[in-house]
Amino acid sequence: MKNYFFVPVSVSFLLASCGANTSGKSNGSSDMDANTSFKQLSAGTNYVCGIALNGNVKCQGENDYGQLGNGSNSNTENSTQVTNLTNVSFLSASLFNTCFVSNGNAYCAGSNRFGQLGNGSTSDSYTPVQVNSISNIVQISTGTNGYTCALTNSGTVYCWGSLADHSDRLSYKDSPNPIQINSQLSFKNISVGATNACAVTNDGDVYCWQNIDNLPNKVTGISNIKTVSTSGLASCALSNSGTTYCWGDNRYGQLGNGSNNNSNSPVQVLNITNFTTIIASGWNSCGITSDNKTFCWGLGESGQLGNGSNNNSSTPVQVNTSESFSQVSGSQYAFFAVNKNGKIFAWGAWKLNGLNPTINTTPVQINF
Rank of each mutant, 00 (worst) to 15 (best):
L299G: 00
N211W: 02
C236D: 10
V82N: 07
S12R: 01
N153L: 02
Q254N: 14
D64I: 05
L95Q: 12
I134E: 09
T294G: 02
V192I: 14
Q332L: 04
F325A: 05
S324Y: 06
N250I: 07
Q210K: 10
A106R: 01
A20N: 10
S313R: 04
G348I: 01
T361N: 14
R113W: 08
N75T: 12
S290D: 14
G24D: 06
L238W: 10
S326W: 00
I179T: 13
V11I: 14
V157W: 04
S123W: 01
T276P: 00
S133Y: 11
F325V: 02
Q365R: 10
D291K: 01
D291R: 01
F368H: 02
V328Q: 06
P316H: 08
S313K: 06
S259L: 08
F336D: 05
N3V: 13
A194Y: 15
N70K: 05
P128W: 12
A346W: 09
S324I: 01
C246G: 04
N353T: 11
A194R: 15
S167H: 15
N27R: 04
T277I: 00
G258L: 06
A234N: 14
Q81H: 00
A150S: 14
F5N: 14
S89F: 03
I359K: 11
N274A: 05
T98K: 06
S191E: 09
N196D: 15
K25M: 10
Y158T: 02
N112W: 07
S167A: 09
H166G: 00
N105K: 15
V48M: 12
V206D: 02
N240K: 13
N112I: 04
T86D: 13
C18E: 01
N136D: 14
S281V: 04
I279P: 03
N307T: 04
N257G: 11
I190G: 12
G342I: 09
T83G: 00
T244R: 06
S322V: 10
K2C: 05
G61V: 12
V317Q: 03
P178A: 08
V9E: 12
N250R: 07
C198R: 05
V82L: 09
D168C: 01
V267K: 10
N202Q: 11
P128Q: 11
T361H: 12
F6M: 13
L352W: 10
T142L: 01
T244H: 07
N75A: 13
P266N: 05
G71K: 07
Y245G: 03
G69M: 06
K340T: 15
N217P: 00
D291T: 13
G287Q: 10
W297N: 04
T86R: 09
A237N: 10
S281P: 01
F6L: 11
A334R: 09
N56Y: 13
N271K: 13
C296A: 09
T358W: 01
A106S: 14
Q318N: 06
C286T: 04
Q130A: 03
T230W: 03
T152Q: 07
G24H: 08
V131C: 10
I134D: 09
V328R: 02
G55S: 07
I278A: 07
L41C: 14
N97Q: 11
K58A: 04
Q60E: 02
C149G: 08
P316C: 07
A237Y: 12
S37W: 03
W283L: 05
T362I: 15
Q60C: 03
Q327D: 05
L233V: 02
T315H: 00
F90V: 04
